[in-house]
């Protein structure tokens, strides 16, 4: 009886964990897109700065654009 209840508890916890992970999918996608946009566009800006010798303007522009793109993707996930 005791072991029965314990295995039931374990099954329920695993089920809830699975449920939570499942729901976290879109949130994880939005989070990674936010940081990915800032990194990618910032890096592109940095490379253009290196190439044109225009430091730091393209880096700043890239970072700003990254924030805009990242937050746009986040907003799309939140306001679905």
């Amino acid at each position: 009886m005791m072991s029965d209840r314990r295995s039931n508890f374990r099954a329920r916890s695993l089920h809830l964990l699975q449920e939570n992970i499942r729901k976290s999918g879109p949130a994880a996608a939005a989070g990674y897109t936010l940081i990915g946009a800032i990194l990618l566009l910032g890096a592109i800006g940095y490379l253009i700065d290196q190439w044109r010798g225009s430091s730091p303007w393209f880096l700043l522009g890239g970072l700003l654009l990254g924030i805009v793109v990242g937050f746009y993707e986040l907003a799309k996930t939140v306001w679905k």
């Binding site: 897109t33 990194l39 990618l40 566009l41 654009l65």
Partner: peptide, 15 residues
């Protein structure tokens, strides 16, 4: 912005 967002997703996965 949408086109950049499209390219950012695989980049985030890569990194």
């Amino acid at each position: 912005i949408e086109i950049m967002g499209m390219l950012v997703k695989p980049f985030a996965l890569t990194m």
